[in-house]
Amino acid sequence: MIKIGDLSLGEFPLLLAPMEDVSDPPFRAVCKANGADLMYTEFISSEGLIRDAAKSVQKLDIYEYERPVGIQIFGNEIASMREAAAIAEAAGPDILDINYGCPVNKVACKGAGAGILLDIDKMVSMTAEIVKAVSIPVTVKTRLGWDENTIRIVEVTERLQDVGIQAISIHARTRKQMYKGEANWDYLAAVKRNPRVTIPVFGNGDVDSPQKAKAYKEKYGVDGIMIGRAAIGYPWIFNEINHFLTTGELLEGPDLEERVRVAKRHLDFSVEWKGEKLGLLEMRRHYTNYFRGLPHFKPYRTALVTTDDYESVCEILEEVSRVFAGAEF
């Protein structure tokens, strides 16, 4: 049984990665319904939280149906991160996660996210202060290093564990790689082989099928897998992986009726959470993925991403269901 503090997550948990502009409550809802064991919010700016910025505060929204759930924060100032950690804890998450992995320039080049991998001592000090600031379990999401010459992930994991984190998720790329090239999970195996590391180690990067999840579990010995991009528009991946790990059998992929049903459910959550205008707008990024592989879908996608009222979007989805009935993906 894998545990984070007193939180039991099963034998081999599947985690939904915190993805900016993706891992909002509507997306988390459909992933939870399809087998995700633990989810995290989008990353939230510590400076935004301490200044009560509306966009940052809204990202604190969590719901009972999605538990267990963690709130993830990022920043480059220790004092601000301490204060933001306390604000996040007050929102009632099960876990507080620290983002030491975001590679984008506007974050990393300011010393936050993956940028802190250039200053491991500060990373450890910041983590220690955050652990002291809250009473809930603290976890970390990070990368292997800034580049291939600064990979110290075995040492980093050990030092972060020593100051109190209770699990770590490692994206098996460096910051320099961004999301390109192949993720190198050999470093995760090295972390797991370190006898001093006793906390759960979750692997992230390139897992996009049940077969790959099983192979990585067996080859690298991680305690669970974090799924990111492969879940966008395909929340069924969690149930498919769980089923394959349990039975060795592959589930059939979702048919058109199921895809429309879940896309509609996702839309409803989005409109409920952010109102019709913003809910429709933020849902637009998902339609391509929900219907990927459907031939001649482009005109319907165009209609879905340009229509600006809820009822009309629902009618388009119903038309997709009728026109493509029986289509194979």
Rank of each mutant, 00 (worst) to 15 (best):
E11P: 04
E272Q: 15
I316K: 03
T306K: 13
A190F: 06
D147V: 06
P18D: 07
A325V: 04
D186C: 11
K176F: 15
A133N: 05
C31M: 07
Q211P: 02
P195S: 10
N239H: 13
L160P: 02
I78R: 02
V57I: 15
V22H: 00
V57S: 08
M81W: 00
I4C: 05
S125M: 13
K132S: 09
W185I: 08
S270P: 10
K141D: 08
E318Y: 05
K298P: 01
V124C: 09
D119P: 07
T302Q: 14
R193G: 08
L96W: 05
W273Y: 15
V262W: 04
G70M: 03
V22I: 14
R175Y: 11
G293M: 02
R159V: 00
R259F: 04
I87C: 02
V201T: 09
N105I: 03
P137I: 05
V124N: 07
R193F: 11
E257V: 11
K274D: 13
I170W: 07
S321L: 11
P68V: 10
M81G: 01
Y290R: 00
N204W: 09
I237S: 02
I98L: 15
L144V: 08
T127E: 08
E83G: 03
Y234L: 06
F202I: 12
Y40I: 09
L7D: 05
R143V: 10
A108L: 01
L281F: 13
V156I: 14
T302S: 14
E258G: 01
V104G: 05
K122A: 15
L256S: 06
E218I: 01
A172I: 10
A327L: 06
Q161W: 02
L16P: 01
T174V: 11
I241P: 00
A128K: 13
F297C: 03
R152A: 09
M123Y: 10
N289T: 04
M39I: 09
T247I: 10
P93K: 01
D61C: 11
G145Y: 00
M1I: 11
P93Q: 06
A53V: 09
T139W: 04
E328G: 09
G35F: 08
Y300I: 04
V57K: 13
T307A: 08
A88Y: 02
E240M: 12
L304S: 04
R285E: 07
E89W: 05
G233N: 04
